[in-house]
Amino acid sequence: MKRGALDSFFKPSAPKKPKYEATPDKSQHTTYPFSIPQLPPSFAEQLSFAPAEEGKIINDQPDLDLVYYQPYIPSSIAADMFSFLRESLPFYRVQYTIKRGTVDTQINTPRYTTVFGVDATSRFTVDGDLIDASSGRPVKKGQYRCRPRPIPQCLDHLRTLTEGTSGETFNFCLVNYYADGKDNISYHSDDERFLGPDPAIASYSLGAKRDFLMKHKPPAPSTATPAPVKEPKPLTVPLGSGDMVLMRGKTQANWLHSIPRRAGDEAKKGRINITFRKAMVKGGTENYYQYNVGGGRVWRWSEGEGMVPWTDKDGE
């Protein structure tokens, strides 16, 4: 083999160029660890055609009220939008402690998380200042233990579209990154009191296909002889890249959902989940930042290395 051929053989390949043209514009705020790129114009243009398919209403079981878009985000940009968001957002691997009886147990969140937004008692101005939603005055120092962050443009654009489609309003964006099939979230419901009664939650999936499992909550114990009822069947929704599920009505009060572990090459591709929701009171803000940002290090995607710790020395 010639020397030139040897050199080219051992020379590391250049990183793949994205199929989209990035914009130099960025969302900046003092609470962001680094500036966050705005949505590429080609994405915004394609999203003007969203939803890509009409939503399918699923309400054939007790207390279940879903609208399933397969997909919502056009397939022409879904893969690139996944890569763009994975590279652009700050993520966290949150650890926290809970009490089990008298024993403190440390929980390691089995996925990467991040969150933006603030509850309905406050809002951000166009300049990023946090003000009281009623009076319009600056929020008093110390009102929040956490540091609320405005939703960056790349996610806020999708929030606005989702509000137009669903007829709902949202003030929070939670993002989960499942790096592989080991990352998961156990059965739970988003029925916290700070979301108010019958909350609507829009949940997007980008990247690897993962099963979204749902099952009805067990009935409350009763001494009376229950009337015979047909037991609701568990539901499996195979979420593909660009799909969206809108959960509304009595769903959160009566159903549990999860993303279980999965083996195989598909799950190793990574998956991003974006959820929009509306927190009504301050407790919602404190909860979301505690469990989705916490006090640990920032992680950022690096092509060829995966998620790596980020420090302010790394710059933009």
Results as ranks from 00 to 15, higher is better:
residue 181 G to R: 07
residue 201 I to N: 02
residue 242 G to W: 00
residue 296 G to W: 04
residue 14 A to D: 14
residue 156 D to Y: 13
residue 206 L to A: 06
residue 55 G to P: 03
residue 33 P to M: 11
residue 296 G to I: 04
residue 66 L to V: 04
residue 91 F to H: 01
residue 165 T to L: 09
residue 50 A to N: 01
residue 85 L to S: 10
residue 156 D to R: 11
residue 37 P to E: 05
residue 131 I to L: 12
residue 190 D to S: 04
residue 305 E to N: 12
residue 277 R to P: 05
residue 268 K to Y: 06
residue 233 K to E: 15
residue 24 P to M: 07
residue 151 I to K: 05
residue 34 F to E: 04
residue 77 I to Y: 05
residue 27 S to V: 02
residue 63 D to T: 01
residue 83 S to Q: 13
residue 198 D to P: 00
residue 113 T to E: 13
residue 312 D to W: 10
residue 269 K to D: 08
residue 7 D to H: 14
residue 249 G to N: 09
residue 26 K to L: 11
residue 18 P to Y: 01
residue 117 G to A: 06
residue 181 G to P: 04
residue 216 H to C: 10
residue 97 T to M: 09
residue 313 K to L: 12
residue 224 A to F: 08
residue 311 T to M: 10
residue 262 R to E: 15
residue 157 H to W: 05
residue 129 D to A: 13
residue 48 S to C: 09
residue 270 G to P: 01
residue 299 W to V: 03
residue 210 R to N: 05
residue 135 S to D: 10
residue 202 A to I: 01
residue 269 K to M: 07
residue 40 P to G: 08
residue 154 C to T: 14
residue 170 F to S: 00
residue 51 P to F: 03
residue 272 I to G: 03
residue 155 L to P: 01
residue 199 P to T: 00
residue 143 Q to H: 14
residue 244 M to L: 14
residue 209 K to M: 14
residue 28 Q to D: 12
residue 251 T to F: 02
residue 202 A to P: 06
residue 237 V to R: 08
residue 84 F to D: 00
residue 212 F to N: 11
residue 73 I to C: 00
residue 295 G to S: 09
residue 115 V to K: 07
residue 117 G to V: 04
residue 252 Q to S: 06
residue 94 V to M: 09
residue 205 S to L: 01
residue 162 T to N: 06
residue 23 T to I: 02
residue 134 S to G: 07
residue 26 K to I: 10
residue 282 K to I: 00
residue 129 D to Q: 15
residue 25 D to Y: 09
residue 190 D to Y: 00
residue 185 I to S: 05
residue 43 F to L: 09
residue 68 Y to F: 15
residue 40 P to E: 03
residue 149 R to F: 06
residue 132 D to C: 12
residue 253 A to S: 14
residue 89 L to Q: 05
residue 221 P to S: 12
residue 195 L to N: 04
residue 34 F to Q: 09
residue 14 A to C: 10
residue 196 G to Y: 03
residue 43 F to I: 02
residue 174 L to I: 11
residue 118 V to D: 05
residue 59 N to C: 15
residue 246 L to S: 08
residue 198 D to K: 14
residue 198 D to V: 03
residue 302 S to D: 14
residue 131 I to S: 07
residue 101 G to C: 10
residue 4 G to H: 13
residue 253 A to C: 07
residue 169 T to A: 12
residue 98 I to Q: 12
residue 104 D to H: 11
residue 125 T to G: 11
residue 206 L to M: 08
residue 29 H to I: 00
residue 88 S to G: 11
residue 220 A to T: 10
residue 129 D to I: 05
residue 201 I to K: 02
residue 145 R to L: 13
residue 192 E to Y: 01
residue 281 V to G: 04
residue 50 A to D: 03
residue 168 E to G: 08
residue 68 Y to K: 07
residue 185 I to W: 00
residue 171 N to T: 08
residue 271 R to W: 00
residue 177 Y to K: 07
residue 82 F to H: 13
residue 175 V to F: 04
residue 112 Y to E: 04
residue 24 P to E: 06
residue 217 K to S: 11
residue 62 P to F: 11
residue 278 K to P: 03
residue 250 K to V: 02
residue 78 A to V: 01
residue 284 G to D: 02
residue 171 N to E: 06
residue 187 Y to S: 13
residue 30 T to W: 09
